[in-house]
Design a protein around this nucleic acid. Structure first.
Lengths: 234, 234
DNA sequence: ATTGGTGAAATTGTATACGATCGAGTGCTG
DNA sequence: CAGCACTCGATCGTATACAATTTCACCAAT
């Protein structure tokens, strides 16, 4: 699947957006490890476009915090420091309760059904084996938070959450240890239940603890087996 | 102050960042009206750089929501719709209480002094006349919220607030009517007092009402004297 | 007078060219 | 053999060239 024998895949209209989204997916899906260099020429060759478009995509990703662009050195998949990681989770604790309350105002039966369905899927994946199921599970667990955000009907807030969830995924890839705290799934369910009962205070409380748990499950000692170079670069 | 008789100003190292910041300042300061077209060639000529750099800056600003880039048509100073405006303020109501609580944890006497000083300045500007004082007052009133955000020590959150305050400024430029609700200043003071008293709940309450007041002071009927074109563009 | 079409001018989209900077390896020197 | 300066290759930064698209003016026809 390198380059040559790709028969009919070349007809996609490859724009900056397409490249950005492709790379973002790869990062969030952990097919690109933190610290990986994204050379403009290499990426351009992959998508058969010039460096111009690639640069645009990389710049966009750097705004989202998924890529670090170092002057005259190139772009690298972000390698969030422990401090950065803490700030990301702290931010989530600051805003997700607000999202919850706002979302609750807009939710009807169909929304709850949607959420329950997502939780079912999440539970199913949890009991499966394999790399693919693991990835899907992680994605689903992020989607839970994103869908809640979408239920506020607020595009501005949704974009913030998109960024936060994506960066969280990077952090977990870097510092996560246990096989995803399976309590996360239970906590998601509890939150939905609390909302359904109209107990927003309790839902917020649960949400904050949930985020706490995710963060507590990380081992944020510096240098996860890696690069002294990166450690001292900036 | 157009172009010609500028004796020794040309030695600035003009990068994408510099252009982006310059344009952002101009937008937030309302020297560039919403809807203004930002032609790549024109901007490039202004800064004596090629379109390449300008495009980078405009892309960045579009990510911040201050500029809309329309394919094959160009970049325009954002012209937030009433719906967008509502979402911006709704987002602020969702996150600023969280910021307040977090900031309160980190605040010592020096921080309060800093805030009080800002409030003094704000009050002074309020009693001055003239366009310049007005601009400075608007800026100061935004800075109040930004400084609170900075006191969380959280760079991620701070970036979000930067964006929200900048976009709010655009919205106010578009839909604002009264000579800035002078009650805003009083409300800022009350918020600081509440924090100082350790009454975070009250501070949050005040903050939400404060944001409400700002929003209530807008007249968001569509078409502020303008463009059918813009209305149907997207 | 309004509508519709045609072509030139202006503007953006993308690729390429060239200069600048960084990093690694090489060879010289102490 | 260690240390340092230097050169060379690779990669990035910026400008420019060319293609694609839109806009606008002009004119004909209803």
């Amino acid at each position: 699947m390198k380059t040559a024998a790709a028969p009919a895949e070349e007809q996609i209209d490859v724009s900056t957006h397409y490249i950005r989204d492709s790379i973002r997916d790869a990062i969030v899906d952990r097919r690109l490890a933190p610290g990986t260099k994204l050379s403009e020429a290499d990426v351009g060759a992959l998508f058969n476009v010039s460096r111009t478009l690639v640069r645009g995509a990389l710049q966009a990703l750097s705004y989202e915090g998924l890529v670090n662009v170092e002057k005259n050195r190139g772009a690298f998949v972000a390698y969030p420091s422990p401090e950065e990681a803490r700030q990301i989770f702290a931010t989530r604790r600051m805003i997700e309760p607000g999202i919850l309350r706002e979302a609750a105002k807009h939710m009807g039966p169909s929304h709850f059904q949607h959420l329950r369905q997502l939780l079912m899927e999440e539970g199913r994946l949890m009991n499966e084996r394999g790399q693919t199921a693991r990835r899907a599970e992680i994605k689903a667990s992020g989607d839970f938070h994103l869908i809640l955000a979408s239920m506020t009907g607020n595009a501005v807030m949704q974009r913030f959450m998109d960024e936060l969830v994506a960066r969280s995924s990077l952090v977990i890839a870097l510092y996560g240890q246990s096989a995803i705290s399976s309590c996360g799934h239970q906590e998601h369910q509890d939150i939905v239940t609390a909302i359904e009962c109209g107990d927003s205070d309790r839902a917020c409380h649960l949400m904050i603890h949930h985020i706490d748990h995710i963060e507590k499950d990380l081992d944020m000692r510096e240098n996860k087996g890696s690069d002294l170079k990166e450690a001292f670069r900036l």
